[in-house]
Nucleic acid binder design. Structure first.
Lengths: 207, 207
DNA sequence: GCGTGTGAATAGTTTCACAGCC
DNA sequence: GGCTGTGAAACTATTCACACGC
């Protein structure tokens, strides 16, 4: 299958929203409702779904439970995925305890920091280690995702370590562009750029 | 002017990179180099720049200093913009101290939380207040940006407060879709969705 | 020669329109 | 009647090709 990033992003949002609907006990949802909820049009939603080979007809919309299950299976979103966090500064420790990860199928199974002092001070239920043990632990615990929360100057180094250790995906919170081999899926979350983007749109408004 | 979001996003990244180059004392940069650095093609970069009314000819690329200045002025990225953070849990306090904001032209001038206990405990150089004073402080301090770092269940409420207080942009870290009036520029940073996106691309790989 | 600026061509995405099913 | 699934149309974005300035 070969879906565009936009489509994948929308599918992820749909999945999250189906999850919420399921918890609220809703049985059916229409493309229109989904569209409103995730900020897209009903056409786009239906097209996205049709690319996956849409479920089946009903006159009430999609059946929440089975649709969610289908998406989960197709994208393996149901599989619990193990992740680690590198860099246990304020942001890193905040992420360590971010409950939503655990709820939504991701499991933070290790934290790393280069400061041994910090490692000893941290109080959390998640195991923390020195960065020097990263490769060993990632392999031993089958970690697929690396979350990078170190300062700009060590970001590249950490990414290289994670790459060497064999993670499949990297979520980068450091505010620099790092070189990541193309076989590793990655996404940058740069807060400053996010604010800049908002500020720039103050001026260049386009819907 | 009427630029697409993609273009604006790239311009923001270019701006950030020019800033880094300037600090490193680099004088010129070509579209090709910029492209590599922000993950785009040289064509796209040149097209983006031409939409702004490109600078001038040289055989060495763009002149870092003047180009950065030009972008800053056109997008008002140079103006220091005031922001506040609502929700002083782990993420919120991490953001309070996120040094990069201060460096890059954004100034966090207030923090808000509904727990008075928490407000008293927090040790930071930034003023913190009860959420009940949000409207008053936002107006008094001319705050343009609201950063939402509260749990899902209070996100909508906080967004409504910020809207009423008159902020122009919202950066939403809560993991739910909130309704935000269209005249307010906003951006969602949903960590779980980010991880899902990465996980989904493990399967649906499309460059 | 090197690297930009930009119209034209290509590729990709979204919207529409409508047939089909419950 | 209501809502989906999907080919075709409209739109948007990216890439290319090449003229131009230094």
């Amino acid at each position: 299958m070969d879906l565009s990033n936009n489509t994948i992003e929308r599918i992820c949002k749909i999945f999250g929203h189906l999850d919420a609907l399921e918890k609220r006990g809703v049985d059916f949802v229409s493309s229109k409702e989904l569209a409103g909820e995730i900020g897209a049009t009903e056409y786009t939603i239906r097209k996205d779904i049709s690319l996956l080979g849409g479920p089946g007809y009903t006159r009430k919309g999609y059946e929440v439970k089975s649709f969610k299950k289908e998406l989960g299976e197709k994208f393996l979103l149901t599989k619990r995925r193990k992740a680690c966090i590198v860099g246990l500064g304020r942001l890193g420790t905040a992420l360590l305890d971010y409950e939503n990860f655990q709820e939504d199928g991701f499991e933070i199974v290790a934290g790393f920091d280069c400061s041994v002092n910090k490692i000893e001070r941290i109080r959390t239920s998640i195991d923390v280690f020195a960065v020097s043990r990263l490769e060993e632990i990632v392999e031993a615990r089958d970690i697929e995702l690396g979350i990078v929360a170190v300062p700009a100057e060590s970001a590249q180094e950490v990414v290289d370590l994670l790459t060497k250790a064999g993670v499949k995906g990297i979520l980068n919170f450091s505010p620099v562009k790092v070189n990541i081999p193309t076989h590793i899926v990655h996404l940058d979350m740069d807060f400053t750029n996010a604010l800049r983007f908002i500020a720039a749109r103050f001026i260049m408004k386009k819907t």
